[in-house]
Amino acid sequence: MGITIAVGVLALLVGLIIGFFAARWYMKKYFEDNPPISPDMIKQMMAQMGQKPSQKKLNQLMSSMKAQQKKENSKK
């Protein structure tokens, strides 16, 4: 009986440790592939397209991107 409990607790701890490192690796990989977009990045992209970004336009783009992200997350 005591050995069964000890093996169960040990398996739980090993699973938690492995799960933590697997999740950490996955999130690092995800953010390398899909970096979060900042207002500075949007300014640079607009400048490359020949547009002069105003603060109002940047705010509109950021809010629309946040709304789209929330919409995608709610579908999951």
Score class of each variant (00 low, 15 high):
residue 1 M to T: 08
residue 1 M to P: 12
residue 2 G to S: 05
residue 3 I to W: 15
residue 3 I to E: 06
residue 3 I to C: 13
residue 3 I to F: 12
residue 4 T to N: 12
residue 5 I to R: 14
residue 5 I to G: 02
residue 5 I to E: 11
residue 6 A to M: 12
residue 9 V to I: 09
residue 9 V to N: 02
residue 10 L to M: 13
residue 11 A to H: 12
residue 12 L to H: 07
residue 12 L to C: 09
residue 16 L to D: 15
residue 16 L to K: 14
residue 16 L to E: 13
residue 17 I to A: 13
residue 17 I to V: 05
residue 17 I to L: 07
residue 17 I to E: 05
residue 17 I to S: 08
residue 18 I to D: 06
residue 18 I to R: 15
residue 20 F to K: 07
residue 21 F to T: 02
residue 21 F to Q: 11
residue 21 F to E: 09
residue 21 F to D: 00
residue 21 F to S: 06
residue 22 A to D: 01
residue 23 A to M: 03
residue 24 R to T: 05
residue 24 R to P: 01
residue 24 R to H: 06
residue 25 W to I: 03
residue 25 W to F: 01
residue 26 Y to D: 04
residue 26 Y to C: 00
residue 27 M to T: 03
residue 27 M to P: 00
residue 28 K to N: 03
residue 28 K to G: 04
residue 29 K to T: 01
residue 29 K to L: 05
residue 29 K to C: 00
residue 30 Y to Q: 10
residue 30 Y to D: 02
residue 31 F to H: 12
residue 31 F to R: 15
residue 31 F to M: 07
residue 32 E to Q: 11
residue 33 D to W: 03
residue 33 D to A: 02
residue 33 D to F: 01
residue 33 D to L: 03
residue 34 N to Y: 06
residue 34 N to P: 01
residue 36 P to D: 03
residue 36 P to K: 15
residue 36 P to I: 06
residue 37 I to L: 04
residue 37 I to N: 11
residue 37 I to C: 03
residue 38 S to A: 06
residue 39 P to L: 02
residue 40 D to N: 14
residue 40 D to Q: 13
residue 40 D to K: 13
residue 41 M to A: 13
residue 41 M to G: 08
residue 41 M to N: 15
residue 41 M to H: 15
residue 41 M to F: 07
residue 42 I to M: 12
residue 43 K to H: 09
residue 44 Q to N: 15
residue 44 Q to L: 13
residue 45 M to C: 14
residue 46 M to L: 10
residue 46 M to F: 10
residue 46 M to C: 08
residue 46 M to K: 10
residue 47 A to W: 14
residue 47 A to K: 13
residue 47 A to Q: 15
residue 48 Q to A: 04
residue 48 Q to K: 04
residue 48 Q to H: 11
residue 49 M to W: 12
residue 50 G to Y: 07
residue 51 Q to N: 06
residue 51 Q to R: 05
residue 51 Q to S: 03
residue 52 K to M: 05
residue 53 P to C: 11
residue 53 P to M: 08
residue 55 Q to I: 02
residue 56 K to Q: 14
residue 56 K to W: 06
residue 57 K to H: 00
residue 58 L to F: 09
residue 59 N to S: 04
residue 59 N to P: 01
residue 60 Q to T: 02
residue 60 Q to M: 06
residue 61 L to C: 06
residue 61 L to I: 01
residue 61 L to A: 08
residue 63 S to T: 02
residue 64 S to R: 13
residue 66 K to W: 10
residue 66 K to L: 10
residue 67 A to L: 09
residue 68 Q to L: 15
residue 68 Q to P: 00
residue 68 Q to A: 07
residue 68 Q to E: 04
residue 68 Q to V: 02
residue 69 Q to H: 13
residue 69 Q to N: 10
residue 69 Q to T: 06
residue 70 K to P: 00
residue 71 K to I: 03
residue 72 E to L: 10
residue 72 E to Q: 08
residue 72 E to V: 07
residue 72 E to I: 07
residue 73 N to E: 12
residue 73 N to G: 09
residue 74 S to K: 13
residue 75 K to W: 09
residue 75 K to A: 10
residue 76 K to A: 11
residue 76 K to Y: 11
